[in-house]
């Protein structure tokens, strides 16, 4: 599908700039040009498609549905899928969280949403397709959704309601009056320009991270020797997965910046499962997210939340390494 891009990169670097295909610089520059263009195309397409899905996604109806129906455990799964579909914006996570809890949805189900929402997002998916291919992306998305399902179910087993912030508890007690909302009736063509603009905005926002990430990746690709990491990290020792995950939790790297670097790790010998676990911990849990959540829950609850998810990610890292 992207053959023409590779031809273009070959032509640009080897013919126009006349940098030899056998030099480190030539290889690194070729990799950089090819990957940057490929990723930007993928990013725009996927963000655009998700923009359309989001414009029509009936959040309120889904909330009511989850609340009314007895789903025998499937509600965790649905909530997790919902988290995967909603856009990647931590600022909307907290209002959605409160909206859910307020709508009478159990805390565990709400957590399923909260886990998957940052974990599976359109930017990460686009980067993954570009760098690891469709199969690895499917594994990432499916395991992200399962992780949210299981994590939420586990957290639902604890009695966590008392650990919410006081003002959230107050909201839960007094049913607040609903502000009036004018229903929108607009056609697809009326919405199309703003969906396109929204997609451009997201691509523009991550552009810098993509370029930096791919530049670092390209530099490593050309200069780091084969199997460099397997000598230290990739040997499959049992402690490599927890180490990768625990290092990654406090980190807040934009998915756009981290995937190209991880791709080189994998190319140089780190097992894919360890890399996926690292990626999940980086985008799924972070210090800024904890700061946001502090407004709605106590530190103890955040600690429980982060520990359970960290454990789940470590376990899934082992599972990937066995399966892949």
């Amino acid at each position: 599908m992207f053959d023409w891009l590779q031809h273009f990169a070959d032509w640009l670097i080897y013919s126009v700039f006349e940098i030899g295909a056998e030099t480190h610089l030539g290889v690194a520059l070729n990799f950089f040009v090819y990957d940057t263009l490929k990723i930007l195309i993928l990013l725009f397409v996927i963000v655009f498609i998700m923009g359309i899905v989001n414009a029509y996604f009936p959040i309120e109806r889904l909330k009511d549905y989850l609340n009314r129906k007895k789903l025998y455990g499937l509600e965790y799964f649905f909530s997790s899928i919902f988290g995967a579909i909603t856009p990647f914006c931590s600022c909307s996570s907290v209002p959605l969280f409160i909206g859910f809890v307020q709508g009478g949805i159990p805390l565990g189900v709400t957590f399923s949403f909260l886990i998957t929402s940052p974990l599976v997002n359109e930017v990460a998916v686009a980067m993954f397709i570009g760098m690891f291919g469709v199969k690895a992306t499917l594994i990432y998305v499916v395991s992200g959704i399962l992780l949210g399902t299981i994590g939420g179910w586990l957290l639902g087993k604890f009695n966590l309601e008392p650990l919410l912030s006081d003002w959230v508890k107050q909201i839960l007690e007094n049913k607040m009056q609903q502000a009036k909302f004018q229903e929108e009736h607009r056609t697809f063509y009326q919405r199309l320009p703003e969906i396109t603009n929204g997609a451009w905005d997201i691509v523009k926002n991550v552009l810098l991270y993509v370029i930096i990430g791919i530049a670092i990746g390209a530099a490593m690709h050309g200069y780091v020797p084969e199997n460099f990491f397997s000598a230290y990290l990739g040997g499959g020792e049992w402690w490599t997965v927890p180490l990768a995950v625990i290092v990654a939790v406090p980190m807040y790297a934009n998915a756009a910046g981290i995937v190209p670097v991880i791709q080189v790790f994998v190319a140089k010998g780190v097992p894919l499962g360890t890399a996926i676990a690292f990626m999940m911990a980086t985008v799924g849990l972070s210090i800024p997210e904890a700061t946001l959540l502090k407004k709605v829950m106590s530190i103890k609850l955040i600690a429980i939340f982060f520990s359970v998810i960290t454990l789940c990610i470590i376990l899934s890292g082992y599972v990937f390494n066995i399966l892949l």
Partner: peptide
């Protein structure tokens, strides 16, 4: 009671939510 931000409220009526 909005679940998606940003939201635009004109004279106490929510007119737009979740998009620019």
């Amino acid at each position: 009671n909005v679940m998606t931000t940003p939201a635009l409220v004109i004279d106490d009526v929510i007119t737009i939510k979740g998009r620019v």
